[in-house]
Amino acid sequence: KEHLTIQPYVKHPLQNRWTLWFFKNDKSKPWQANLRLVTKFDTVEDFWALYNHIQLASRLMSGCDYSLFKDGIEPMWEDNRNKCGGRWLITLSKQQRMLELDQFWLETLLCLIGEAFDDYSNEVCGGVINVRAKGDKIAIWTRDTENQEAVLHIGKTYKERLGLPVKIVIGYQAHADTATKSGLGIKNKFVV
C-alpha cells in the first residue's frame, strides 16, 4: 500500500513580529488620530500576503505614510524606543516617484524583515515612507544616536542595498533635532 504523507506547510518565521501603520493626513484631526494600525505579521509569507494586497506607495495620496515598526514600538518620536534615536533619510525628487519610490520602499521593507544589518539589527526600530507633493521621503529609524558603530553600519548597508552610487551622500538625523527644528536647520549627525 502506498502511503501518502502530506507535508505540513510551514511558513518561514521572521526574527521579529512587525506592525504596519498607515497615516492619512486629515488636518481637522490631531496627528495621532490619523494614524492607524493596519496589521501585524511574523512570517515571510504573511509579509507578502500583506504587501501584495495593499496599495503601492507611489499610488497613495499626498500626505500619506506607511510605517513598519517592530511590534511594541509606535511610529513616532515620543515612543521610548525612538526618543533617543534618529533616522537614515532618503529624500527623493518628484521624478523619482515613478522610477524608484516603490523599489526603494520594498528594499527598505526587505532589509527590515530580513534583518539585513546583522547583529546591529537590534538597533533598528522600523522604517517610514512619507508621500509628499514636494518630494517623498523614506527612512530607517534606529534607537540610539550615540551608538555610532551601529548607526554607521546600518547606513552603509542600507545605501548599498538601495544601490545608491558612492557619490550620493545620505544623512542620519537625530529625532530630537527633527522635532525641534525644521528644514535646513536639521544637521546630519552622520553621513555615508
Binding site: P13, L14, E45, L110, I113, G114, E115, A116, D118, R161
Partner: peptide, 18 residues
C-alpha cells in the same frame, strides 16, 4: 542567540509561493 536572517533573493523567491 542566533538571528533569523533572510537575504533579498530568498525573500523575493517567496513572493509568489503558495
Amino acid at each position: 542567540g542566533t538571528r533569523i536572517i533572510y537575504d533579498r533573493k530568498f525573500l523575493m523567491e517567496c513572493r509568489h509561493s503558495p
